[in-house]
Each structure stands twice: as C-alpha cells, then as structure tokens.
Simulated assay, not measured.
Amino acid sequence: MGHKVHPKLFRIGVTNTWPSRWFARGDAYRKQLQQDLAIRSFIQRRLKEGAISNVTIERSRGVIAIAIHTGKPGLVIGRSAQSIDELRKEIAQNFFRGKKVTLRVDVVEVPKANLDARIVARQVATDLERRLPFRRVLKQTVERVKKSGGLGVKVAVAGRLNGAEIARREWLGWGKIPLTSLRADIDFAQDAAQTMAGTIGVKVWIYRGDVFEQDRLSMYQPTTPTRGPRGRMGGGRMGGGRGSESGLSSAGA
C-alpha cells in the first residue's frame, strides 16, 4: 500500500506557513478550528467566481483578521468596496452574532495567478464544466504555467472524461516536480468539476523553484537570539535554537 504525503503539509514551516495563526487550549481550540473551517467554506462558496487562492485567519484578544488571497481583487472588493462590506456583515452575522469582536476582512492580490495551484485547479474545473475537451484543457493549462515562469507542472483529471462509460485517470506534465525535496516550493491543490456525466476530480502540482535558508520569509526565521560558540566572549547571541523559530503558536486547518 502506498504512503502518500500532502505536498503542502509536508513543507509547513519550511516553504509554507499555517493558514490559521492563533493560540488556544482544550475546547476553545476545537471550537475555533471548526469555526475557521466553516468560515473558509463560506467564503469559497460566496466568492466562487473570485479566483480565491487562500484564506488566512489570525486571532488575538477581541480582534479577528481574515485575509482573502485572490487573483481577481476587483471582483471581490466590488464597486466602492460594496461587495467586501457585504461579505464582512454576512460573516459577522453568521459566525460572530452577539459577540464583541472586531472583525477585519482584507483582500490580498495574488501576484501570479497562473502559478497558484488552487486558482489553476478551479480554472480547469470550470473549463470541464463548460464541456471543453479535457485534453485541450490540460494542454492549455500547462502552457499557461510555462509562460508564467513555472519550472514544472502536473495536472491530473479523473472520472468519466468526455462522457465516457468507464471512468479513468489522465494526466499531463511538464518540467520537474521534486516532491521529496523539502526546499522545493511545490504548490498543490485539488478541486472537482460537476459535469452532466458525473464528478471529475482535478489535481494540480506546480513547482516554483527552490527556497534556500537565506531566502526564507521572516516568519520562518528564529525570533529569539541564539548562543554563539562556546568560549567566545562577547559578540555572541544568547537564546534558544530551532525550537524557537516562531514566536506565535499556530493552528492549521
């Protein structure tokens, strides 16, 4: 039996970070985690055409900050910020009714949408729902990723492709996808297309290059000073080691 590891979860703390950042214990942890999952599902349904890449949630005392990463910020914000204001009111009414919290909803633009696996997977699913031939969809998707600067891409679809009687799995790839290298920046996502013949699953892997130690984001670097070599007087920094890489405890969905 094969042992498969999620490419993004495998690299949390190395090239990826947690989608939820807060600290809680016991029942509060379970309730807040379930609430985060419900909020993400609500936003994905509410903004289905908004090319949503990721939704990050940060909690502090009385403040909840939700950041929506999207490839179409204009569509999400709306004219005169009307759409984002309505979304904020709906989230407050559905999830925080009667609670004294400050809810902040921000919109972050994804710089290269064609290098984001979730946005690409959603586009593939949309094309399949429009009854486009799956082979053409796979080729066009690979070409878009190549032109955007990706170093490798793999797109897999499974189901009753083109309305066939028997379900099967087909995939198309280009470049390299080093799944066993921790420093490789691999973006992975899966989606589903609801067609007349049934559900077709979509999986996308995109390789965006290596992330070396000196290139990591500041959130992955130690926040406390470290002790220098023994016997050296002065100039050394004191503190913990790898265990103190993050000064903020995190919880992921």
Rank of each mutant, 00 (worst) to 15 (best):
H69L: 12
A92W: 09
A38Y: 05
V157I: 14
E49V: 05
F134K: 04
G71R: 06
G62P: 01
S60C: 06
G78V: 07
I66M: 10
L132D: 01
K99M: 14
I43R: 04
L115H: 01
L128K: 05
S53H: 04
L151N: 12
S41W: 09
G62I: 02
I68H: 06
I119S: 13
A65E: 15
S80N: 15
A38D: 13
T70S: 12
I91H: 07
I91F: 11
I68N: 06
G159S: 06
G74Y: 02
A65F: 06
N114Q: 13
V105G: 07
A65P: 02
A117R: 06
L47G: 08
L87F: 03
V120T: 11
F42N: 04
R135E: 08
A28K: 12
N114V: 01
G159F: 08
L132A: 15
E109A: 14
T126C: 02
E58G: 03
Q34E: 13
G163R: 01
A113P: 13
N54F: 09
R59W: 08
K48Y: 07
V120I: 10
N114P: 03
V137R: 05
I66R: 00
V124I: 14
Q82H: 15
G78E: 01
S148F: 04
R79N: 12
R136P: 02
V76L: 13
I57D: 01
G78S: 02
K48Q: 09
G150Y: 12
R118G: 04
K154E: 11
E129T: 08
K139M: 04
G71S: 11
E165S: 12
P133C: 10
K146T: 10
A38S: 11
N54M: 11
D85H: 05
R136H: 11
F134G: 03
A117S: 12
F96P: 02
V153I: 15
V124G: 06
F42C: 05
T56A: 00
R97Y: 14
H69G: 01
R46L: 07
L128Q: 05
P73S: 06
G78Y: 02
D36Y: 03
L37W: 03
A28T: 09
V55M: 04
V105Y: 07
A164H: 07
E165N: 11
R61L: 12
I84C: 00
L132H: 04
I66Q: 02
R30C: 11
E109C: 03
T126D: 07
E90L: 11
E49C: 02
G74F: 10
V142S: 12
F95L: 05
L128W: 10
S41G: 13
K147Q: 15
F134M: 02
L161N: 02
Q93T: 13
S83W: 00
